[in-house]
Write a protein that binds this DNA or RNA. Structure first.
Lengths: 187, 187
DNA sequence: TTGCATTGAGAACGGTCGTTCTCTATAGTA
DNA sequence: TACTATAGAGAACGACCGTTCTCAATGCAA
């Protein structure tokens, strides 16, 4: 393993999968090392600590989320369709068999009270999503309250799908979003 | 400390506050012992393990939640008002300065993947809440989908308020619920 | 009082985890 | 070939945590 950029990416990939699947504190650095197939020394030469690795993992999840939402809305042309595409994106995600809820909600629940970094990253991610929704709602001519409501539906769908283990929450959230949007846009 | 029922309650109270405030794995049994003011030996004579104590704590939270929701809706007379009272209850909760999100969502995120007990309790609590909402919606003449949507709004409000640290999510969710209810009940 | 059971306080144990260190093998250079 | 620097593999370290154990103090029965 010569290219350290490649090695970093592999470590982040392995750690992301393990942290998401089992929780962060339940995964030791040994498990990350084994999954990434490198030595502990190399692991610690790439990341100074588990906390630093976690930050990298969560930042990677931010990128993944943004790309996923944008990809889902890329075929939509109207702001309304782009907004509804969010729930279609959620639907596809919920149906993946390794789905275990929102990594930011999970890590906030596990470490938010004890790690300012984790709390800050989770808060930032949620805020960015709210801003994205708000920009589309504004294009649509809707109110900031509607934007907040559509974001709340997306958050609720994620926790509901995660804990119940059933993906229909995305469907329900989408239908509710349609009603809320129609309600504001009707004369 | 002679009355062991009283002692159990005190331990559960102390553990609940610590687990909720800092996370479960971040709190050692020593901290619980200190907060409860009893010896380790007595603590382990009351609860066989930390896991068993956690189960007791979460079951206590179920009772608290049920009582809180029922109390909030007790002054309401119509099913619609009882449903909206849920969001008023959330609003009051979000404004408490020790609010740190839903204990079930948090513990599911932290331990759900690794502890079947925790996952099961969280799932059960969410399901019971959905049933409660569904029964009111049925009284109201609404559909099961509306019930699911109202529950999703409540869940989303909880995570949004927890991570953003701002309580307005309850108000937004309530307003959205009014719209969704009106939409189904309109001719 | 004497003996016995119970309890409190916390030391001790075994295991795990994050992190560092040792030791060896290898590759590059002169 | 001899020397040096690097890196892999994992043992080792120190801290912590859940749980158990020791031991002295206490309360009670006779």
């Amino acid at each position: 393993m010569i290219d350290s950029k490649e090695a970093r990416a592999e470590v982040v990939r392995a750690a992301d999968a393990l942290f998401y699947q089992r929780g962060i504190q339940a995964v030791g650095m040994d498990a990350v090392r084994n999954a990434a197939g490198i030595s502990l020394k190399r692991l610690y030469s790439l990341f100074p600590s588990k906390d630093a690795l976690l930050v990298e993992v969560l930042n990677g999840r931010i990128v993944e989320w943004d790309e996923g939402v944008l990809r889902a809305s890329s075929s939509a042309t109207t702001p309304r369709a782009k907004l509804l595409a969010i729930y279609d994106f959620l639907d596809g995600w919920f149906r993946q068999d390794d789905f275990r809820g929102c990594a930011f909600i999970n890590s906030f629940g596990e470490l938010g009270a004890v790690s300012p970094d984790v709390a800050e990253i989770a808060r930032g991610q949620k805020l960015a999503f709210q801003h994205y929704v708000a920009s589309l709602v504004k294009e649509l001519g809707g109110s900031p309250v509607l934007a907040a409501q559509l974001a709340i539906l997306a958050e609720g769908a994620q926790t509901t799908a995660a804990i119940s283990g059933r993906p229909e929450a995305a469907f329900h959230a989408r239908a509710a979003a349609e009603v809320l949007i129609a309600n504001e846009l009707a004369p």
